[in-house]
Design a protein around this nucleic acid. Structure first.
Length: 276
DNA sequence: ATGACGCAGCCCCTGCGA
């Protein structure tokens, strides 16, 4: 079904904003998602942890806000979606490399913006705790599959954005208290090594390409007053192919959304591009 | 993270997240 046209024109028609946001249940967060879409006016949004089957996704409400929708959901856990102001082509679920993996953690699509098309992959990389153990093995195997996928797509030499909840703290400066995370699946040496292998393919991490300062976080736990203490970590990322990185203009973390009523524990991370 | 919260669903308790 066609998304209804909205009256709003983009701030700058030559730029494209691509965002990622782990919403921790789309049903519980619909009002906040609509509020943020109206405020931030992103062109493309990758959502994670929608926690519902495809049929239960609030498609009509999102379409009424002016977005096309591609969903790959499952009952109770995980689930990813891509929202786009421009039409979505070739939406494909599932990360290649393990036909037995039934977690809904990956969706890829091509978005044709007015200024050119971009391939977008929305990912929800496994948490991996407790580590070591089978859940951590699954995380590392998933990262290896993601690396194979990225290598394959990079060979196309086209604009590509892999955006999502990576469940990876890339470096000590990406946590308020890095010492607390050294044994955790999000920050263990093997996790960071797999992250570095991904970047070594030639991908650029959008936020760090624009800002090398400390204190940039995208997640604050609901517990222990983490938000009030700014006890955060940065685990939501956008990785860019060279053809996308060349067009990167700016990035932003919409931290204020964490202070809204009944928030997700993650906030939106946005990259702005000048395509065309 | 010695606890603190919040989500879904088998729904007043458990599994999971990070």
């Amino acid at each position: 079904m066609m998304a209804r046209k909205t009256s709003r024109a983009p701030e700058d028609p030559a730029t494209v904003q691509i965002a990622t946001w782990n919403v921790n249940s789309i049903k519980s967060r619909l009002d906040l998602v609509l509020r943020w879409l109206a405020e931030a006016k992103p062109d493309v949004v990758c959502l994670q942890e929608i926690k519902c089957v495809d049929e239960a996704f609030p498609r009509a409400a999102i379409e009424d806000a002016g977005y096309h929708v591609a969903v790959h959901g499952q009952k109770t856990y995980n689930g990813v979606a891509i929202l786009s102001r421009s039409p979505i082509e070739d939406a494909t679920p599932r990360l290649p490399g393990d036909d037995g993996d039934d977690h809904a953690r990956f969706i890829e699509a091509v978005v044709s913006t007015p200024s050119g098309s971009v391939r977008v992959a929305g990912i929800y990389l496994p948490n991996g705790n407790p580590a070591p153990g089978p859940k951590y093995d699954y995380k590392l195997a998933w990262m290896k599959r993601l690396q194979a996928y990225a290598a394959d797509r990079l060979a196309l030499e086209e604009p590509l954005v892999i955006a999502g909840d990576y469940n990876v703290i890339p470096a000590a400066q990406d946590a308020k208290r890095p010492d607390a995370w050294v044994e955790d699946a999000l920050f263990r040496p093997d996790t960071r090594a797999a992250w570095r292998r991904l970047l070594a393919l030639g991908l650029t991490e959008a936020v760090r390409a624009c800002d090398d300062s400390s204190g940039l976080y995208s997640f604050w736990d609901y517990q222990a007053g983490a938000w009030q203490k700014n006890d955060g970590i940065r685990i939501d990322h956008l990785l860019l192919s060279p053809q996308a990185a060349d067009r990167l203009v700016s990035t932003r973390i919409d931290k204020h959304v964490r202070a809204w009523e009944r928030p997700s524990d993650h906030v939106p991370v946005v990259a702005e591009f000048a395509f065309g």
